[in-house]
Computed example of a mutant assay.
Amino acid sequence: MTKLRSFDQDTVDLTAWRERGSEPGLVERILDTNPGLADLGPVLPLGTAIDVPEPQVQMPRSPVKLWD
Rank of each mutant, 00 (worst) to 15 (best):
G21K: 03
D51M: 07
P55D: 10
L37N: 12
A38W: 08
M59P: 03
N34S: 07
P24N: 03
E23K: 06
T33F: 12
V12I: 11
G41M: 07
A38Y: 04
P53A: 00
A16F: 04
E54A: 15
L26Q: 06
V43Q: 04
S62K: 15
Q56P: 11
E28I: 09
G41I: 13
W67Y: 12
L14D: 08
R5A: 05
Q58C: 04
D68I: 05
L31H: 10
W67F: 10
E54M: 05
P42F: 09
L14N: 04
R61G: 07
N34Q: 11
V57Y: 14
R20T: 05
V43T: 14
P60D: 02
G36S: 08
D13E: 03
G41S: 10
V27R: 07
G36L: 13
P35H: 06
D8I: 02
L40P: 05
G21N: 06
E28G: 12
T48P: 02
P53C: 05
T2Y: 12
Q56M: 06
V52E: 02
D10L: 01
Q56I: 13
D39H: 15
P45Q: 07
D10T: 01
D51R: 14
T15P: 00
L44Q: 08
K65A: 09
D32A: 15
F7E: 13
G25I: 05
E19A: 04
K65L: 14
E19T: 05
P45I: 01
D8E: 07
W67T: 14
M59Y: 14
D10H: 03
Q9C: 03
L31F: 12
P35E: 15
V64Y: 13
P24C: 05
D8P: 01
G25N: 12
P42T: 09
Q58L: 10
T33Y: 11
D13T: 06
R61D: 11
P60Q: 08
V52W: 01
I30N: 01
R18H: 10
I30V: 14
R29Y: 07
I30G: 10
P35C: 05
G41C: 04
L40I: 03
I50K: 07
E19Y: 11
A38S: 11
T48S: 07
P35T: 12
D51L: 10
D68M: 14
D8G: 00
K65I: 12
G41F: 08
R61P: 00
L31D: 06
R18N: 09
P45D: 08
A16K: 01
F7Q: 06
I50D: 00
W67C: 09
Q9Y: 00
S22D: 13
L44K: 03
P24T: 13
A16Y: 01
D39N: 14
P45S: 09
W17F: 11
G47N: 02
T15L: 14
G36M: 14
I50N: 01
D39I: 04
G36D: 15
L37H: 11
R61T: 08
V43N: 11
P45N: 08
D10C: 00
P24D: 04
R5N: 02
R61S: 06
A16W: 08
F7C: 07
L37M: 06
D68V: 10
S22W: 07
S6M: 00
Q58N: 15
L26P: 06
W67D: 13
